[in-house]
């Protein structure tokens, strides 16, 4: 059994699936540190629209990104039902505000397809690929570009 799992892990990816509006997305589970319910954030001055503010996670101050707004959807009005997925991106820990976490999936690398060539710049910038799963389509998020240093530093009044 253990052997089988190890073998699978080599070829497979464990992903965490979540919903934003009517679309489904997923993330590599290895980058997820924690999943918690929505807590009010402290807004940052002159932050981009998709940066909801900062929260306290066990003594660390980390930003919460409204993933829907980041992907170009309508910004989320967070409620107690919303979920923050705490992820590790490089050296930074950030929270992603999503509607709900739906599933944990194991997919083989081979089943991840290239992002279809659509017009939207945003879609291409933030998707690593798409996965077909039981008739649904999940987009694999490329975390690196969600909160780049450049965007984080965008704070000067202009």
């Amino acid at each position: 059994m253990t052997h089988a799992r190890e073998h699978d892990a080599a070829a497979n990816n464990e992903l965490i699936a979540f919903r934003l509006g009517s679309q489904e997305f997923c993330l590599d589970i290895m980058s997820v540190r924690d999943i918690r319910g929505w807590t009010p954030t402290t807004p940052l001055p002159h932050a981009c629209e998709y940066v909801k503010g900062v929260i306290n996670l066990r003594g660390a101050v980390l930003p919460v990104v409204d993933l829907a707004a980041r992907l170009g959807f309508a910004p989320v009005e967070p409620s107690a039902r919303h979920v923050i997925i705490i992820t590790q991106v490089g050296n930074q820990t950030i929270g992603l505000l999503v509607d709900a976490v739906s599933d944990i999936l194991t997919v083989s690398s081979g089943s991840i397809q290239a992002t279809p060539d659509v017009a939207s710049e945003l879609a291409r910038a933030f998707m690593k690929g798409v996965i077909a799963m039981e008739g649904r389509m999940l987009s694999l998020i490329a975390l690196d570009s969600v909160l780049t240093q450049n965007q984080a530093g965008q704070g000067l009044p202009n």
Binding site: L44, P45, H46, V61, N91, Q92, T93, I94, G153, G155
Partner: peptide
Amino acid sequence: TNYGHVFGV
């Protein structure tokens, strides 16, 4: 650490 420099902060 987790975000970046913010003006005025």
